[in-house]
Deep mutational scan, measured.
Amino acid sequence: MTEYKLVVVGAGGVGKSALTIQLIQNHFVDEYDPTIEDSYRKQVVIDGETCLLDILDTAGQEEYSAMRDQYMRTGEGFLCVFAINNTKSFEDIHHYREQIKRVKDSEDVPMVLVGNKCDLPSRTVDTKQAQDLARSYGIPFIETSAKTRQGVDDAFYTLVREIRKHKEKMSKDGKKKKKKSKTKCVIM
C-alpha cells in the first residue's frame, strides 16, 4: 500500500485542523484551538488504489514558523489553505509557496490551493482571484467548507493525484537520464 505524506499549511484560523478532522473523523470542530502540530493517518481508496494518507496539520501562528522547514522537508505534497473571508490569509499563500519551493529546492512541488469556509456569506476573496492565482502557479484550486464537508475529500484526493503525477514524471525523467548515460565512448 502506497503511503502519501501530505502537509496542510496556511495562516492561523483558516480551518486547516477543521478540514483535516472532517476528512479523518467526519465531524466539524467549530471551536478554535490553535494547533502546534498534529499528525493523522487514514486509509482510503483513490482511483481504485488503496493508500495510506499521513497528514500533518501544522501551526499557522507566526511564533511556530521555525518548525516549518522541518515538516516541509518531509512532506510530499501540500494543501495551501486560505479562508475566503480573510484576504490576508490569501496573500500569505505566496509566502508559504515560496518557502516550500526553497526548502524542497524545487520549482515543481505537488500543491493544491484550497479556499476554505465557502459556506460563509462574508467572502472577501473572489473565486476568480483564487483561480487566477492557482493557474499562475500551475496547481489545482478547490473551494471547501469544513463545516458542510463540501470539497473536503476532493481537496485531499486531488493532492494525492498531483503527487502521483509528480512521481510518474520524475521516474520518466530518471529513465531518460539513465538511457543517456548508457551511451559509451570508444577510443581507438
Rank of each mutant, 00 (worst) to 15 (best):
V103C: 09
C80Y: 10
L113V: 09
M72W: 01
F90V: 14
H94S: 11
K101T: 10
E63Y: 06
V125D: 13
E98S: 06
L120Y: 14
E91P: 04
E98W: 02
K88L: 11
V109T: 08
S65M: 09
P110G: 02
R102L: 08
C80F: 15
R68L: 01
I84D: 15
K101N: 10
I100S: 02
Y64H: 01
V114C: 07
R97N: 06
R73G: 06
A83F: 02
T87G: 10
V109R: 03
D105T: 08
F82S: 14
P110W: 02
E76H: 11
I93K: 00
F90D: 03
K88C: 10
I93Y: 06
D69V: 01
V125K: 11
D126R: 06
M67D: 02
K104F: 09
G77M: 12
N116D: 08
G75R: 04
E91K: 06
I84G: 15
N116G: 10
L113G: 02
I84F: 14
E107Q: 10
K104H: 11
D105M: 09
K117F: 15
C118T: 12
Y71I: 01
F82C: 15
R73E: 07
V109Q: 03
D108P: 05
S65L: 06
S106M: 14
R123T: 14
K88E: 13
D108L: 06
P121F: 11
M111L: 09
T124L: 10
T124A: 13
R68Q: 08
D108M: 08
E91W: 05
V103N: 05
G115Q: 07
R97A: 15
D119W: 03
D108V: 08
M72H: 02
D126M: 09
L113C: 07
D119H: 07
K88F: 09
D69Y: 03
E98R: 06
Y96W: 15
S122I: 09
D108N: 10
D105K: 11
A66E: 06
L113S: 03
R97Y: 15
V103P: 01
S89Q: 09
V103R: 05
D92G: 06
M72R: 01
I93D: 02
V112K: 00
G77D: 00
K88M: 08
V81T: 09
I84R: 13
V109P: 06
V112Q: 01
V112I: 10
P121Q: 11
V112T: 03
I100W: 05
G75V: 06
A66P: 14
Y71Q: 01
M111Q: 01
L79R: 00
S122H: 12
I84N: 15
D119P: 04
M67H: 00
Y64R: 00
S65A: 12
M111I: 12
S122F: 10
S89V: 05
C80A: 05
K117M: 15
I84V: 15
V114M: 08
V109N: 02
V81K: 03
I100K: 00
R123Q: 14
F90A: 10
K101C: 10
Y71A: 04
Q99R: 05
A66K: 04
R68N: 03
L113E: 00
F90N: 04
